[in-house]
Amino acid sequence: MPFLHIAGERFRYETTGLRKGPALVLAHSLGTRLEMWDALVPHLAHRLHLIRFDARGHGRSAAPDAVYSMGDLGRDLINILDALDVPQAHLCGLSLGGMVGQWMALNAPQRLNRLVLANTTAHAGPHRLWEGRIKAVRKAGTAPIADAVVESWFTPAFRQATPAEVARVRTMVAETSAAGYTGTSCAMRDMDFRHDLSHVGTPTLVVIGAQDRSTPPEWGELIASHIPGAQKVVLDTGHMSAIEAPEAFAAALTRFLA
């Protein structure tokens, strides 16, 4: 799998699908990597040029031991698009990826065509909750929290029906470096776009999981109600809607991008 070297840092990426088709960036959640989108890719590759990458702090991309900001993650994406000679793209981000999408819409809207914000939020909750998780991961790494994370991400029915898929995602969480996880957690802790959403001019679709415990439906509803002209779709899933319901997710995304 190829790498880009940008300003002395390495980023793993993958491009698949229709090379001359519209470009669609898929941005993953905290604690996963580009393989998070594996179930969705077959439903989209015949019509879109798909770009996936490991975000800073994840997978095999650079994971400096530092406090990251949402701007750091957004500028990483801009640099990746520049390196791939993609002046403008659709962006679909889930959870953390949706937060990066909001940053892009507010700070680099000229790089976006359409925006899909899935299972995400404009504000990720009280600082004290993040501080507790950051402290725990710095002390013991990500493996001890992996079970609790995936339990909160998937519905009980999905966990029971597809234990191998849940285990695959759990492995991604457990293999995320402590430095990368905590650095990214700082970016999520410090993010607050709630008062800026009315300035988003990019056509936007908000995907909400009806059983999402990590970013509850009301958080997605807030985004949809504050971005002018935003569309909304509710899927009967937990947090990882693109994994639990890839066909329904792809259908909603395809309708919106068309």
Results as ranks from 00 to 15, higher is better:
A118L: 09
A118Q: 06
N119H: 15
N119D: 15
N119W: 10
N119R: 04
T120R: 02
T120K: 06
T121P: 07
T121C: 11
T121E: 06
A122T: 07
A122I: 05
H123W: 14
H123N: 12
A124P: 12
A124Q: 09
A124L: 13
A124H: 03
G125Y: 08
P126G: 11
P126Q: 03
P126T: 13
P126K: 13
H127L: 10
H127D: 08
H127S: 09
H127I: 11
H127T: 05
R128L: 11
R128W: 14
R128F: 12
L129M: 14
L129N: 15
W130K: 02
W130M: 02
W130C: 14
E131G: 09
E131W: 07
E131T: 14
E131V: 01
E131H: 11
G132V: 05
G132Q: 15
R133Y: 15
R133T: 02
R133S: 10
R133A: 05
I134G: 04
I134R: 00
K135V: 03
K135L: 06
K135M: 09
A136C: 04
A136T: 02
A136R: 10
V137Y: 09
K139F: 13
K139Y: 03
K139W: 02
A140R: 07
A140N: 15
G141V: 02
G141H: 00
G141P: 00
G141W: 01
G141I: 01
T142R: 07
T142K: 01
T142V: 00
T142D: 07
A143V: 03
A143N: 00
A143Y: 03
P144Q: 12
I145H: 03
A146Q: 14
A146K: 00
D147T: 07
V149M: 08
V149K: 01
V149P: 02
V149A: 02
V149S: 03
V150S: 01
V150C: 08
V150Y: 05
V150K: 12
E151L: 15
E151S: 13
E151Y: 04
S152N: 15
S152I: 04
S152Y: 05
S152M: 14
W153H: 03
F154T: 08
F154D: 03
F154M: 05
F154L: 04
T155P: 09
T155R: 12
T155I: 03
A157P: 05
A157T: 12
F158Y: 15
F158E: 05
F158H: 07
F158A: 10
F158K: 06
F158T: 09
R159T: 09
R159P: 01
R159V: 04
Q160T: 10
Q160F: 06
Q160S: 12
A161I: 10
T162G: 00
T162E: 13
T162L: 08
T162N: 13
T162V: 14
P163A: 08
A164L: 06
A164V: 12
